[in-house]
Write a protein that binds this DNA or RNA. Sequence first.
DNA 1: GCTTTGGGTGTACAGACGTTCACTGAACTG
DNA 2: CAGTTCAGTGAACGTCTGTACACCCAAAGC
Lengths: 222, 222
Amino acid sequence: MKQERGRRAGRGRSAVPPEKAGARQERKERTRQALLDAGLELVAEHGFAGLSLRQITREVGIVPTAFYRHFRDLDELGLKLVAESFGTLRQMLRAARRDITDYGQVIDQSVEILEQYVSQRRTHFQFIARERSSGVMVIRQAIRWELRLFVSELALDLSRFPVLSEWPAEDLQALAELIVNSMVVTAEGLLDAGSERDRQDIVESAKKQLRMIVVGVANWRT
Amino acid sequence: MKQERGRRAGRGRSAVPPEKAGARQERKERTRQALLDAGLELVAEHGFAGLSLRQITREVGIVPTAFYRHFRDLDELGLKLVAESFGTLRQMLRAARRDITDYGQVIDQSVEILEQYVSQRRTHFQFIARERSSGVMVIRQAIRWELRLFVSELALDLSRFPVLSEWPAEDLQALAELIVNSMVVTAEGLLDAGSERDRQDIVESAKKQLRMIVVGVANWRT
DNA sequence: GCTTTGGGTGTACAGACGTTCACTGAACTG
DNA sequence: CAGTTCAGTGAACGTCTGTACACCCAAAGC
């Protein structure tokens, strides 16, 4: 009951099946990515703190010591995961910029894009949500830093809306922060929603909340 | 470097110094509370997932196996910490109801009460913030459940405001959710703010955000 | 005063962990 | 073709973990 080892792993003898095998560099890159993927998967289950080097390598199908050929330690892998996850987040932001055409429906469309990305790239969002306030300091700090950057990027986007073009920077920043925070919490909700019904409720609630904020913005002064 | 054991602990031979010693029941209760306190302290440092039974008992100054006299396992202790922490949260809500007299300053006073509680009962807030989306399922679920309850309580409070008395339940719920989420995130920010300056900025930003929400509420319809 | 109760002790064990080291053998280099 | 590089191997280590078990002895109950 305790082990359930070899769930995947270990079908030949080498890591990440040789399969027509590319150059040595490509092979290395492939197991490196496999380590990242396995790490992401396991973090989603037990959190980064409950992650072990041996577990990851077991999942990938290589011997524990081979891990060091790719990362100095778990923290280094964790930081790569942070970068990777925020790549997804930025990709979502770009999609929003691109796909939102009707400005009368910014809210609905934004939340729907979020919902779509959360379900499609689940583990990345789970990683950020989970470790954003976790006990592992380096990871937490990296995420908070990236999140601040992300807020600033959104603030810049917001400044292009006519209503907001005259707003002072700090008000814009606060607004962007409020929006990002709401989106993060919404994502967290979606991530462990039990049923389609739950997800629907969360989406509706998020839209309502964004609408309240927008109404607030429309009547804001100073 | 690794051990630093005996930081507190083990000055006589028995747990939680005898000190004029009360009845057996009282003594038990005292070491039980000491276990909870040590647990809370250690969670603040490494998160619940990075918590070990032996570490806690070492901190308290009793032998590992004695732990079982008080809790079946770490999860049970964790659930007690959830209850304890939400006790503090409810106490804060009551304080807000009691101390907020001038309705023109609900926002400023609310945020200030939050700031005060966060710094006074740091570990409780840290526990909730950390484990709210942690990898340890039982704890996470317990916190989310309590948080939902807390949101409902706030929604009830909100319904007593004249402006909100006519709002449909679901709008109230969404509003309460938005407010609680913002407060949670604000608390998280305060918890790992480096300087007094940072704290000030966070407080200002939180007030601004609440004001936006309130303006939104004032102009809301349907 | 004698018995029972029950926190706390001490030893012991097996399993998981991170990390070391010397190694192998296929892919690269010249 | 000979030589080098290097991702992956496998055994061994010391440490930490949770938990089982038999024991101890002061307080509680009669």
